[in-house]
Design a protein around this nucleic acid. Structure first.
Length: 109
DNA sequence: TAAATGACGAGGC
DNA sequence: CGCCTCGCCATTT
């Protein structure tokens, strides 16, 4: 019963992302002990969009690119939400990624 | 059961 | 400096 699915672990991390911050799939994968499963994180997010507890819009790829925006209903929704939280987004990518980057490994450990 | 897919990452050319 | 290829691993069909 404690067998939390890979997805649930990802959700747990993403749920801890503070507003106005973003993180990368690889960082989340690392925090859950699956650094090589970055792709799975994105896959999990695909299901996460079904949940309103998981701010998938705060998750971007390693390049700060809003890769998942295409999976949102509105392609501008993700960008709008990030901008509304204080994250500067332009051309579908986060500006000053290092400044807004939130490392889950440093918070969860 | 096996094969294909996928919101990525790192390395190579 | 930019584009391409390979690897990785869990879920889905």
């Amino acid at each position: 019963m404690e067998e939390k699915s890979f997805f649930e672990r990802v959700y747990d991390v993403v749920r801890q992302i503070p507003g106005g911050k973003v993180t990368s799939y690889g960082a989340i994968a690392k925090s859950i002990g699956a650094a090589k499963s970055a792709r799975m994180v994105g896959y999990a997010m695909n299901s996460a969009k079904d949940l309103d507890d998981v701010p998938a819009h705060r998750v971007v790829n390693r390049n700060g690119l809003l890769t998942g925006k295409s999976h949102f209903g509105d392609h501008s929704a993700m960008q709008q939400m990030l901008a509304a939280e204080g994250v500067k987004v332009k051309d579908n990518k986060v500006q000053d990624l290092e400044k807004y980057f939130w490392d889950p490994v440093e918070e969860i450990k």
